[in-house]
């Protein structure tokens, strides 16, 4: 009897909470759709640069690579080829100008490196790649990373950004929500405090903890986990901090639209999971160009891009500042929207 009453009550609650109901049915569809986009596409074809000397056998090599699905770009000398590699225009460079063929790989994505290397080996010595007999004669250089760069090393920077982002988001969301549900926010706003002061106060209070978190994550991932790290530790911390600030402002903003802790959790598949897919954890080169642009509205994409730059390519402030500027812009935007959203609580 009591069980039935309880079950009935829960059903009633579900029916009253339209959003929970929507989450139950629509969110899995959304996530499945995204996974389809990410994994359903063809495998990425590496783009390979070719430095050639006239009158040699490059035509056959180039043709074979093209047949295997690679995009080929020609370069007149080693130098221009290497510049293209550094800019990320090509994934690998085959230099036939020297005495022996030389291969240089961009190296930050182990999957792409492996694909490029396989194609090149096959093209240089048809049939030999399988037996591995070419390995000894080929000189292979890595622009970034090394042959031992594992998938985790490559994913690492993205995960560093992701987890920092995720937990700050959740924490900020729930604590701001509590302020609302326990009535303290209303009591707070009965005092002559301005709305922006409330938002700024939250940023300040949480900012301290996000700073600590950013430092801890940066230290742990490089010193304890031993993630591949080429750049500056301080820059890594700065990126983490900006990313956490974005998560903080986004979390508090979205908590305005949640009625309880459970509804905060509902934002995870809607806000966090899509960002994971588009953050660079998965190679999106094979994805529809138009769909790939979705990542431009995702803070985690910029954070992960900057983190990869610092950790894998040893980039400095000069090359990652656009990412940092975008993250800062996101934080500012979310904070301002937060001030506006507080109007729901008090109109002045």
């Amino acid at each position: 009897m009591r069980t039935r009453a309880l079950a009935y009550r829960i059903i009633r609650q579900f029916l009253r909470d339209k959003r929970t109901l929507a989450l139950l049915f629509l969110a899995p569809l959304l996530v499945l759709t995204l996974m389809n986009f990410v994994f359903g596409g063809a495998s990425p074809a590496p783009s390979i640069g070719l430095v050639t000397v006239p009158g040699t056998s490059q035509e056959t090599v180039s043709q074979q690579l093209r047949q295997a699905g690679a995009t080929i770009r020609g370069y007149g000398d080693s130098k221009s080829g290497e510049t293209a590699l550094e800019h990320g225009d090509i994934d690998a460079l085959l230099d036939l100008g020297g005495a022996a063929p030389r291969i240089a790989l961009e190296g930050t994505d182990p999957a792409v490196s492996k694909a490029s290397l396989g194609l090149l080996q096959q093209a240089l010595s048809p049939g030999a790649a399988a037996s591995g007999s070419m390995d000894g004669k080929l000189q292979v250089d890595y622009l970034h990373g090394s042959a031992s760069l594992s998938s985790f090393d490559a994913f690492g920077p993205v995960l560093v950004g992701l987890f920092g982002f995720f937990f700050v988001f959740l924490l900020a969301g729930v604590s701001f929500l509590r302020e609302r549900t326990t009535g303290t926010l209303e009591r707070l706003l009965a005092a002559p405090i301005r709305r922006w002061e409330v938002v700024a106060g939250y940023l300040g209070g949480f900012g301290l903890f996000t700073l600590l978190q950013a430092a801890l994550i940066a230290w742990y991932s490089t010193s304890v986990l031993g993630l591949y790290m080429e750049g500056s530790f301080w820059l890594l911390m700065l990126v983490n901090l900006l990313l956490a600030l974005t998560a903080l402002t986004l979390g508090t903003l979205l908590s305005t639209y949640a009625g309880n802790e459970f509804q905060i959790i509902q934002f995870i598949p809607l806000v966090i999971v899509p960002q994971v897919f588009f953050s660079g954890l998965f190679n999106l080169d094979a994805m529809n160009e138009w769909l790939r642009h979705i990542r431009l509205v995702m803070p985690l994409y910029y954070g992960a891009d900057a983190l990869k730059g610092v950790m894998l390519r040893g980039e400095g402030l000069a090359s990652i500042w656009p990412d940092l500027a975008v993250l800062f812009g996101f934080s500012l935007l979310f904070a301002l929207l937060n001030v506006l959203a507080l109007k729901k609580q008090r109109s002045i």
């Binding site: 326990t182 009535g183 303290t184 209303e186 009591r187 009965a190 005092a191 002559p192 109109s347 002045i348």
Partner: peptide
Amino acid sequence: MPALPVLQRIGYMAQSDALYA
């Protein structure tokens, strides 16, 4: 109302105890 400067001169006790437990 609502006017921010007036809030300084008002003491408000809400129906639910808005306290940080």
